[in-house]
Design a protein around this nucleic acid. Structure first.
Lengths: 178, 178
DNA sequence: TTACTTAGTTCGTCGATCGAAATATAGCAC
DNA sequence: GTGCTATATTTCGATCGACGAACTAAGTAA
């Protein structure tokens, strides 16, 4: 696809004052990315006429299918952080809309597994495929150093957010807490 | 390996196979970051006993306050993408919980502005302050090249996600009652 | 003035979640 | 085997947060 690989691609304003982005620029971009992603999810979910959780569930099911695994309702509930009655209702909705089927678990007769229909796979690919393609293009366009920088950035941001043990560094940083 | 990275790589597994992260590694880290952030928001929201939208509204109000601006209910509704009756209910909840006050708009007597209480500012800082400091430390710890790489990565990812045109109309959840 | 628009509220409803209790199966101890 | 406990799911009843429609009050334009 003709996705531009130039460093200055895309959307918007660069860093007006300086040649390099500042820390604040980076945090703002992170915020903007988060907002863009949330907006995208809102579009998808309204285009597929379903809620956030339903869409998330569908993604989990398709991923599992791709890995040759099956998910029980219980697994869905755990992964999504919702209680089992909510899973029942969730799967009811997805069955009603034709996105999944319920099937008996091969080994455990108490359990039902949830299987996405082939139509679902097509639909999700049609809806998200182009965007995923563009995202992958972006990542593939990074050179080794950039990829390392981005990976390490995320790794440390995850730690910061999860509040695993943190080596306390001098907290100079001005508060831009939003 | 000349690339002993940074003080601590924090959370977890590095790239098992290779010296450098692959594109897939980067996308996985992005996913993990997103999940970590969502989990954090869930913790905050339960620790402050409020829903996602309420928390988002509070953030907007505090940001506006810091910029010396005031928000009308209408502004909140627009920013949050909810209808005006929902804003009324939202502000009702926040007033009841003591997080905001309603005040008459200085110029437009139809409008009410919503002002966060000082306690709210303290509470949010107490809840999120440490985490924000850790995030800022991470960004401040990047050198120029890394910062540039991360910034450009986000800039292009935003473009990839926002990319307005939606080609294939999805098959509109046809009920394939299986 | 009259007519229209905008800000916010009230009301009734809907959809998605929850906890508690019911049902069926699984697995273990004896 | 019989019993006891744990697990997977469902049903029920309640709550919470959003919505549209209809309303009041205030600004705006003819």
């Amino acid at each position: 696809m003709g996705t531009e690989q130039h460093p200055r691609a895309s959307s918007g304003y660069w860093y007006p004052e300086h040649e390099h982005p500042t820390s604040v620029d980076v945090l703002n971009l992170l915020r903007r990315y988060r907002a863009a992603e949330a907006a995208m999810r809102a579009r998808t979910r309204s285009s597929m006429a379903m809620g956030e959780t339903d869409l998330l569930a569908l993604r989990l099911l398709l991923q599992a299918q791709r890995r040759g695994e099956v998910l029980r309702q219980r697994d869905l509930g755990t992964a999504l952080g919702i209680a089992s009655p909510s899973v029942t209702a969730l799967v009811d909705r997805l069955v009603r809309s034709g996105h999944v089927r319920r099937e008996p678990h091969p080994d455990d007769r108490r359990a039902t597994i949830v299987v996405p229909t082939t139509d679902t796979d097509h639909e999700v690919r049609a809806t998200l495929g182009a965007m995923h393609r563009r995202m992958i293009d972006v990542v593939d366009g990074l050179d080794d150093d950039e990829r390392r920088a981005v990976a390490s950035f995320f790794d440390r941001m995850i730690a910061a957010v999860e509040h695993l043990d943190v080596h306390e560094a001098p907290a100079k940083a001005t508060i831009t807490a939003d």
